[in-house]
């Protein structure tokens, strides 16, 4: 796509840039407000709406206390570690198993494949709330409740991920695989050494979304975890937000907590983007 268009107006680009920039502003602006307000004192937030952290006398003042309090309130060290374990373990297992399944549905033939796939797709139609209590009962039966396991195991499979992986594998050229079959390679080796590397961009995308889904999972933690030593960031932050909207002096602490919890994700997302874009220009799907 690097061909230069001779004599074509660049209005396409201008329109794109304008629209995207305007849109981006509406996304960034609230977050900027969130970020800036997290440095203000409680009284100041309601007295004046401003994008800069002004205190009640109207001067610029950064209240770092809010961040200190947020870290203490969230019990950041333990909770961060818990979240990391849960997110990484679940994402890795999830991606691996779902890629396996997606590959099987796309490339391997076995009896009942279509029926099984259709039945599995049905499961996204069940409203999630109704599954909560039965799932809780099952987890209690399996004795994994009130531990990190209960945040990992019920989510190792995701129909969305299977579907998208299947899509990706469908679109891969078959001849490389077929050559490998001819060479006598087993299906697992083909999957691992040939097909999987080729869908890495999608893997990264799904990895990001799965990681973030795990990171922000609050409701399930609320009903399945009672002991505070297994809290994740989402749970701690959820508690902080409830407390902050009720108790005035905690409002800016709550904002600080929200910034602390969301900043790593934004960074991870930004860095992962580089990988996706980089991966596509080298050895990607070429025809």
């Amino acid at each position: 796509m690097n061909r230069k268009r001779h004599g074509r107006p660049k209005w396409n680009r201008i329109v794109s840039y304008t629209v995207l920039s305007l849109l981006a502003v509406t996304f960034v602006f609230p977050y900027l407000w969130l970020f800036s307000s997290s440095f203000r004192e409680p009284g100041a937030i309601y007295s004046s709406f401003s994008l800069l952290p002004l205190n009640s006398s109207g001067e610029l003042e950064l209240v770092w206390e809010n961040y200190k309090n947020a870290i203490a309130y969230l019990d950041l060290k333990n909770v961060f570690f818990n979240t990391l374990i849960v997110c990484v373990v679940n994402t890795v297992i999830n991606l691996f198993l779902n890629a396996l399944a997606g590959y099987a549905f796309a490339r391997l033939q076995f009896k009942g494949k279509k029926v099984i796939f259709a039945v599995i797709c049905l499961s996204i139609m069940i409203p999630g709330t109704v599954m909560t209590i039965p799932n809780l009962l099952i987890c209690r039966f399996l004795k994994i409740d009130d531990s990190l396991g209960v945040l990992i195991w019920p989510f190792i499979m995701s129909v969305y991920n299977v579907f998208l992986m299947r899509q990706q594998f469908y679109s891969l050229p078959k001849e490389v695989e077929e050559a490998a079959i001819v060479d006598g390679a087993g299906p697992f080796r083909i999957f691992f050494q040939i097909s999987l590397p080729l869908v890495t961009p999608m893997l990264v995308v799904l990895g990001i979304t799965t990681f973030m889904w795990n990171y922000n999972n609050f409701m399930w933690s609320l009903v399945s975890i009672q002991s505070s030593e297994y809290f994740t960031l989402a749970r701690s932050l959820g508690d902080l937000v409830s407390a902050g909207t009720g108790e005035a002096s905690l409002y800016p602490v709550m904002l600080a907590g929200s910034v602390i919890v969301s900043l790593p994700l934004i960074l991870v997302f930004f860095l992962a983007q580089k990988y996706i874009l980089g991966g596509l220009t080298e050895g990607g799907v070429k025809e």
Partner: peptide, 29 residues
Amino acid sequence: MMKKGIRIIGSVIGLVGLIGVIASCEDSS
């Protein structure tokens, strides 16, 4: 590349198993 992948996955599964064992031993009532 594949060996490294297997090593990573193996250690992850091991870690998970460890967590599961520890967590289930934890009797918080």
